[in-house]
Structures are given as C-alpha cells and as structure tokens.
Amino acid sequence: MKLSTAAPWALSLAVLWPFQAHALFGDDEARKAIIELRQKVDANKQATDAAAAEAREGDAGTRRSLLELSNQIEQLRAELARLRGQNEQLAREVSELQRQQKDVQSGIDERLRQVEPLRVEYDGQTFTAAPAEKNDFEAAMAQLRKSEFQPASAAYAGFLQRYPASGYTPSVLYWLGNAQYASRAYKEAVVTHGRLVREFPAHVRTPEAMLAMANSQIELKDPRTAKRTLEDLVKVYPNSEAAAAARERLARLR
C-alpha cells in the first residue's frame, strides 16, 4: 500500500521535473538577456551622452570660433576704415601739394614772362625788349594818342633814362620831339629830333624828324636855320616823302 501510494507521487515528480528545470533555465536566460539588454542600453546611453557632450563641446568650440572670426572681421573692418581714412587724407595732401606746385609753376612762368625778352618789330626794326620795356613804351604811346602831350613827354623821357640801349630809342626820340612840339616846347623838340638825326641817320623816322626840326625852327623865328635843315633833308633823303614836303616849304621860304 505504501509503495502504491508513493508511486504516483514519484511519477508525478518525475514528470514535473523537466518542466521545472526548463522553467528555471528559461528565467536565467531571460535575466541574462535582460542584463545584456540593459548593458547595451547603458552603453548606448553613455555613447549618446558622450556624443551629445562632444556635440555640445563642438558647438561651444564652433561658437568660440565664430566669435573669434567675428572679432577678426570687426578688427579688419576697423583697420580698413582706418586705411581708407589715411588714403583719403593722403589724397587730400597730394591734391594740395599738386595745387601748390601748380601755383608755384604759374608764379615762375609769370615771372619769366615778366623778364624774358620779347621779339619786337617796330618802325622797320627788329630787336628784343623786356616785357616791362615794351609795356612802358606802349603806355607812353597811349598817352600821346589821347593828346596828353606833357604826360607823354615825361613818359618818353623816363623811358630813355630807364632803357638807354633800347631798340625803341629812335622811335622814342621821334615821338618825344613831336610831343614837345605839340606842347610848344620848340627848343626841346629841336634838341630831341637833332639827337635822332645824329645817332640814327638810317632810321625810317629820321627824314620826318628833320622836317619836324625845321617846323620847330620856324616857330622859333629862325627861318635861316630852318631853310638849311630842309636843304639837308632834300639832299640826304631825296626820295623820301619828307623831302617832297621840304621842297614845298623851301619854295615858300624863298
């Protein structure tokens, strides 16, 4: 009875043992799988955290690089603005120097024009004259044309003193004598025209000066001297217009 009673229990235990053993084995595998899974999750989390940290560090580095680059750009902009300012200042200084140089050159050219001799053709003569010399002569002529005889006489006399070797001298003597004659300074006119005749006998104005001398001598009530002057004029310059006028006056003086 005892054996029969124990047999079923033993049989039941024998049947259940594989299942229990299998159940126990499955739990270990599951736990192992869970542990491995947790380890993988933890590893992935660590890797993710590390990547995130690295990314954050990379972002911070990028931000630092961008900030440094931005600062460098601002510095370059400031330097460029400074260089532009210097360039503009230099451009202004160069422009001012060029203007000053131009003014200096203009001043030099003007001074050269004031002293550089000019080529002059007057009364059939060609000569050189300083600009001031030419201006003084033309100023005296302008006064004579306005019938300002006494100021013109003074201007011609001053010219002869300032420019004793001027190419204008024969013409100045001629016009000075005429201005003196017009001012009724007959004696002075005879002296002036007489100098032209003596010093410049070949000048184109010399025959006219002799005719003017005779007129002054007539005004001085000296017809004999006037007659002799007219005769010399006809003799020395027979083909001149002044000689033709002299012949007519000689006829009247006889």
Score class of each variant (00 low, 15 high):
residue 2 K to Y: 03
residue 5 T to V: 15
residue 7 A to P: 03
residue 7 A to Q: 10
residue 9 W to K: 08
residue 10 A to S: 13
residue 10 A to M: 13
residue 15 V to H: 08
residue 16 L to V: 09
residue 23 A to Q: 00
residue 27 D to H: 05
residue 30 A to W: 03
residue 34 I to W: 13
residue 37 L to P: 02
residue 39 Q to M: 13
residue 39 Q to Y: 08
residue 43 A to D: 10
residue 44 N to S: 13
residue 44 N to I: 13
residue 45 K to D: 15
residue 47 A to V: 05
residue 48 T to E: 09
residue 49 D to M: 04
residue 56 R to N: 08
residue 58 G to Y: 15
residue 60 A to T: 13
residue 61 G to N: 14
residue 63 R to H: 12
residue 63 R to A: 12
residue 63 R to Y: 11
residue 67 L to N: 14
residue 67 L to R: 14
residue 70 S to K: 09
residue 73 I to F: 15
residue 76 L to A: 15
residue 77 R to V: 13
residue 78 A to H: 07
residue 82 R to G: 14
residue 87 N to H: 14
residue 88 E to V: 13
residue 90 L to Q: 14
residue 94 V to K: 09
residue 94 V to Q: 11
residue 95 S to I: 06
residue 102 K to L: 12
residue 103 D to E: 14
residue 104 V to N: 07
residue 104 V to C: 04
residue 106 S to I: 15
residue 107 G to Q: 13
residue 112 L to F: 09
residue 114 Q to C: 01
residue 115 V to Y: 01
residue 116 E to G: 06
residue 121 E to F: 03
residue 121 E to T: 07
residue 121 E to Y: 03
residue 122 Y to A: 15
residue 123 D to I: 01
residue 125 Q to L: 06
residue 128 T to N: 08
residue 128 T to I: 01
residue 129 A to W: 00
residue 132 A to W: 00
residue 135 N to I: 04
residue 137 F to E: 12
residue 138 E to H: 06
residue 140 A to G: 06
residue 146 K to T: 07
residue 154 A to C: 02
residue 157 A to E: 04
residue 157 A to T: 03
residue 159 F to H: 04
residue 161 Q to N: 09
residue 166 S to E: 01
residue 168 Y to G: 03
residue 169 T to C: 02
residue 174 Y to S: 09
residue 175 W to N: 08
residue 175 W to P: 00
residue 177 G to K: 09
residue 183 S to C: 06
residue 184 R to G: 00
residue 185 A to M: 06
residue 189 A to M: 03
residue 189 A to H: 01
residue 190 V to W: 00
residue 193 H to A: 06
residue 195 R to C: 02
residue 196 L to T: 00
residue 197 V to P: 03
residue 202 A to K: 14
residue 203 H to S: 09
residue 212 A to K: 05
residue 213 M to R: 03
residue 213 M to P: 01
residue 214 A to P: 05
residue 216 S to H: 01
residue 217 Q to V: 10
residue 219 E to G: 06
residue 219 E to V: 10
residue 221 K to D: 12
residue 222 D to N: 05
residue 228 R to A: 11
residue 230 L to H: 05
residue 231 E to W: 09
residue 232 D to F: 14
residue 232 D to C: 12
residue 233 L to F: 04
residue 236 V to P: 02
residue 236 V to S: 08
residue 237 Y to G: 01
residue 239 N to I: 14
residue 245 A to Q: 13
residue 245 A to W: 07
residue 252 R to K: 12
